[in-house]
Amino acid sequence: MAAKPKLHYVSERGRMEPIRWLLAAAGIEFDECFMKTKDDLLKLRKDGFLLFQQVPMVEIDGMKMVQTRAILNYIAAKYNLYGKDLKERALIDMYVEGLLDLNELIMTSDYQPADKKEQQLATALDKATNRYFPVFEKVLKDHGQDFLVGNRFSRADVQLLEVLLMAEECKPDILAQFPLLQSFKARISNIPTIKKFLQPGSQRKSPPRQEDVPKIIKIFY
């Protein structure tokens, strides 16, 4: 039996959270090894496990993979969440790249100084409402299917749901003008593997508590 993937990161969302989401959506159990101090990160570097001296790092199939997008691409391809041909993969890549950009804006706002946090979050939510979510509302309308690409569940669906839920945490009515995204959220949330990941006690992480932010920053910087 193959070893479970092992995820090396802090016990927070950060850049590892989309990876957790994708593994969970694929129904793959994984272990986590949390860095609690700067020394934990330095040890990974000293042991030669981090190609570019950075985490996230995922041990999978005998590899120690780094770079979030490379890890996500590998998992998506391995577990048939990457479309049926090159054209579908190209569409998935376009959607996911946009979602990761928005994810980064929302996620990193938690780690900004107080005077910049509110401004960055407001910018992120404005872009979500006026740039990103209208795109996916239109895709669902034009496509007329349950999923974003083809009529098949893919990584694009997983990562759109993750971002929708993150945005709603910050602004509960953000989907008010997007009925198809509301339906999409309900539909994808009911996929058994996703439904399990959304339950209390799963490996899904909560937003960082403000008092924990300085500790997290100290590990990385």
Results as ranks from 00 to 15, higher is better:
residue 77 A to K: 12
residue 93 D to C: 05
residue 77 A to F: 07
residue 10 V to K: 09
residue 192 P to C: 13
residue 64 K to M: 10
residue 95 Y to P: 02
residue 136 F to P: 11
residue 201 G to M: 05
residue 105 L to E: 11
residue 217 I to T: 09
residue 193 T to R: 05
residue 150 G to H: 01
residue 23 L to T: 03
residue 12 E to L: 05
residue 96 V to P: 03
residue 160 L to I: 01
residue 126 D to F: 01
residue 23 L to H: 03
residue 30 F to N: 10
residue 207 P to M: 11
residue 118 E to P: 05
residue 76 A to G: 04
residue 96 V to K: 03
residue 55 V to D: 13
residue 55 V to H: 11
residue 110 D to V: 03
residue 158 V to T: 15
residue 160 L to Q: 00
residue 209 R to E: 14
residue 214 P to R: 02
residue 31 D to N: 09
residue 205 K to Y: 08
residue 170 C to W: 04
residue 218 K to S: 13
residue 28 I to H: 05
residue 15 R to K: 12
residue 10 V to N: 08
residue 192 P to W: 12
residue 165 L to M: 13
residue 7 L to W: 07
residue 132 Y to R: 05
residue 146 D to H: 11
residue 78 K to D: 07
residue 68 T to V: 13
residue 212 D to K: 03
residue 40 D to P: 00
residue 2 A to T: 13
residue 33 C to W: 06
residue 43 K to T: 15
residue 111 Y to M: 10
residue 213 V to N: 01
residue 117 K to Y: 04
residue 216 I to T: 07
residue 167 A to M: 09
residue 121 L to H: 01
residue 59 E to G: 11
residue 58 V to A: 02
residue 128 A to Q: 00
residue 12 E to D: 09
residue 102 L to I: 06
residue 129 T to S: 15
residue 80 N to D: 15
residue 122 A to Y: 00
residue 148 L to S: 04
residue 121 L to I: 00
residue 219 I to K: 04
residue 56 P to Y: 02
residue 86 L to S: 06
residue 148 L to K: 01
residue 179 P to G: 11
residue 185 K to M: 11
residue 179 P to Q: 11
residue 32 E to N: 08
residue 52 F to A: 02
residue 34 F to M: 01
residue 102 L to C: 10
residue 46 K to I: 07
residue 71 I to E: 06
residue 184 F to D: 15
residue 149 V to C: 12
residue 204 R to D: 04
residue 193 T to V: 06
residue 153 F to D: 12
residue 105 L to W: 02
residue 216 I to G: 01
residue 178 F to T: 11
residue 106 I to G: 07
residue 51 L to W: 11
residue 33 C to H: 10
residue 195 K to E: 08
residue 177 Q to C: 04
residue 80 N to K: 14
residue 30 F to S: 11
residue 19 I to Q: 13
residue 96 V to D: 08
residue 218 K to C: 06
residue 194 I to M: 02
residue 113 P to Y: 03
residue 73 N to T: 14
residue 203 Q to V: 05
residue 106 I to P: 04
residue 145 Q to K: 14
residue 51 L to C: 03
residue 14 G to F: 01
residue 30 F to I: 12
residue 85 D to I: 00
residue 181 L to C: 08
residue 195 K to S: 12
